[in-house]
Design a binder for these strands. Structure first.
Lengths: 355, 355
DNA sequence: ACGCACCTTGATAGCGCTGTCATTAAAAGG
DNA sequence: CCTTTTAATGACAGCGCTATCAAGGTGCGT
């Protein structure tokens, strides 16, 4: 363990770390007034405010976040809790949250969690007890776990959920309409003359899988095309499962669907890989579309037609909701919105064409 | 701004946030003794230690990290500064750093930085003044920027650089031998009968690009094959630039190289996409290999033969170095290593075959 | 002029912990 | 047996800031 001994270090490199005291002294006011200025509080004469700001600037003063947290009610820290296999999703989410938080002087603690761990509830309770976060953002699958929500609520920390499938209304949330997106993607295919459409279902544990399938079925039924069971394959959101699904769907080379809608991009890539291996030409023989617009959709050929999830926008929205929530007086009635739905985008590329 | 008014909240949800005082009272000792136990300090009777631990457990006590930071010398916070376009690189790095830090009770502040911003030095100085980090990890390209290093050093914060290209010896660092990896990949191709090998160079601003090219040239010369200029294309690490490079390399369909070594995976994907568009069969006509082992290399067909960077291991090593550095008494001579080189791995998949 | 608002400012008490140092108890030495 | 060393514990002063509350200043109505 560290045992710092020397009371005062000699190597004061260029110790520009000035405190609120230094500023107060230089400006000739009390530290409380400096505090007021730094926090943009009212009731400070404009002249004084300027004087303090100048002093702070001259000393390169930056309030110590840790001290603020300890003394005050806010910690200027929000947590992003995730357990998501997709690196691009996590990065986009994180990027968006950090960007927004930074604008408000907040920092983000990125906390990956093992959603399969039996003691995840305690792990989160422990985290929240150790660091008093001003808010947390929960992404799938954590946002659908009761123990997680319980832990966060017990700690009294405001939170926002991103794309939850369960417990609607239990918390503020931001989401995208998976069902509608899948519906429109199916219509897109239908409009291009496809009626014999195969579907690769997503991981049954994920709420979004079911919503996407529902959207597909709805569009088909509306077009008076009953989905046929031998055209429906079960996948598990992975490349391998997509490839496996394609094996089933392409079993009879004389009876191929004209299009395949995979419930996520990874599986679409699997389908495309299998097609290539077996000489099925995409999109000439079979059109393939995916869902998510992962980076991979732009590196395979043909580029994948897919649904773009507005991940960064979801992050912005979640951060905004959280910050407005954390900033608002808890006693006051809260009129801020509690649910935001963001638009998706159908991105047409080369993997699908009219029949 | 927030104005918390009510002095004491009525809604004490289940306010299990116990303090060191509560533990001390329950255990019948002073808070200092509790502190000693929580920090695993010596000179506490075993019996007392047990008593305190029991009390802490019963109260679900977790030391407040912010208070510890303010009072003590350590903040239990390390920063991961990055500005990297590759989400998988960042995620793997972050994941590894977080994992290791967690084991030591440290938390990680993920701080993306705009390396192109003119005031990046001040931005980092400001960050370090606001939050007293116990250490920071710098990844490319930040780790090669003098202003960044200056800012970190001025703040007196220990740091470790990952895969730096410049200023060797200026700090502790972890790296991988890009040159050797490219050398071995080239030998891999040579050993399979390829001599007419095309090379797509990486972004000239990235140090690794030059090292990889050097490794390629070295292996070629050793095999008595002089690389020919019309087989060398300049890329910029992007898919599009790889595709563009392939255009040049494949210009004369009667005179194709038998293999193409792209300096990173993205560009290899571009090459493969162009090949597919123009009917060049991979790997039958042309073998393609990449570098990095990004997730995409497993979703394209044929899967890409490439070099796996040990990103997570680099992260582990960097975190370990940093923590040992931060934990060690600054006055004592430091015998811990200051540079670690980690092994890469040539991952053979389907995109390359013997000629 | 006085009284009563309100605006402006500062003194002071912590936040929950660690570092220092004093103190006591136990062990070692002669 | 008493002194010296060493182990074990506690009292207390902050870390840098915010929250509370009191105090002084200003303006205005009467």
């Amino acid at each position: 363990m560290t045992q710092t001994k020397a009371p005062a270090k000699e190597q004061s490199v260029a110790n520009t770390v000035s405190t609120i005291n230094d500023v107060a002294r230089l400006a000739g006011v009390s530290i409380k007034t400096v505090s007021r200025v730094m926090n943009n509080e009212p009731n400070v004469r404009e002249e004084t405010r300027t004087k303090v700001k100048d002093a702070a600037a001259r000393l390169h003063y930056r309030p110590n976040l840790l001290a603020r947290s300890l003394a005050g009610a806010r910690s200027f820290l929000v947590g992003l809790l995730y357990d998501n296999p997709s690196s691009s999703y996590v990065i986009d989410m994180q990027q968006g949250v950090i960007e927004r938080c930074r604008q408000s002087g907040y920092h983000v603690l990125s906390e990956p969690q093992d959603s399969l761990a039996p003691d995840i509830g305690r792990a989160i309770a422990s985290l929240l007890a150790t660091i008093r976060l001003d808010g947390v953002i929960l992404t799938p699958p954590l946002c659908d776990m009761a123990v997680v929500l319980d832990a966060v609520e017990a700690a009294g920390v405001p939170y926002v959920r991103v794309s939850p499938s369960l417990f609607p209304g239990r918390s503020a949330l931001v989401e995208m309409d998976d069902t509608q997106a899948a519906y429109e993607m199916t219509q897109f295919l239908l409009a291009r003359g496809h009626t014999d459409i195969g579907f690769v279902r997503g991981h049954p544990e994920h709420g979004s899988s079911h919503r996407r399938y529902d959207g597909f079925v709805k569009a088909m039924r509306e077009a008076k095309v009953e989905p046929r069971t031998h055209r429906i394959a079960q996948g598990f959101n992975s490349f391998a499962s997509g490839l496996e699904a394609a094996k089933g769907l392409f079993k009879n080379s004389g009876d191929l669907p004209t299009a395949i809608f995979a419930s996520n991009d990874e599986m679409a890539f699997g389908v495309m890989a299998y097609a290539q291996q077996t000489g099925v030409r995409i999109p000439d023989q079979v059109s393939v579309v995916g869902f998510d617009d992962t980076p991979g959709s732009m590196i395979i050929w043909p580029h994948l037609t897919t649904i773009r999830q507005p991940v960064t926008d979801l992050a912005y929205a979640a951060a905004d909701m959280l910050l407005s929530r954390a900033t608002v007086d808890e006693d006051a009635p809260n009129f801020s919105d509690t649910r935001r739905e963001l638009p998706f985008e159908l991105v047409e590329r080369e993997s699908a064409k009219a029949v």
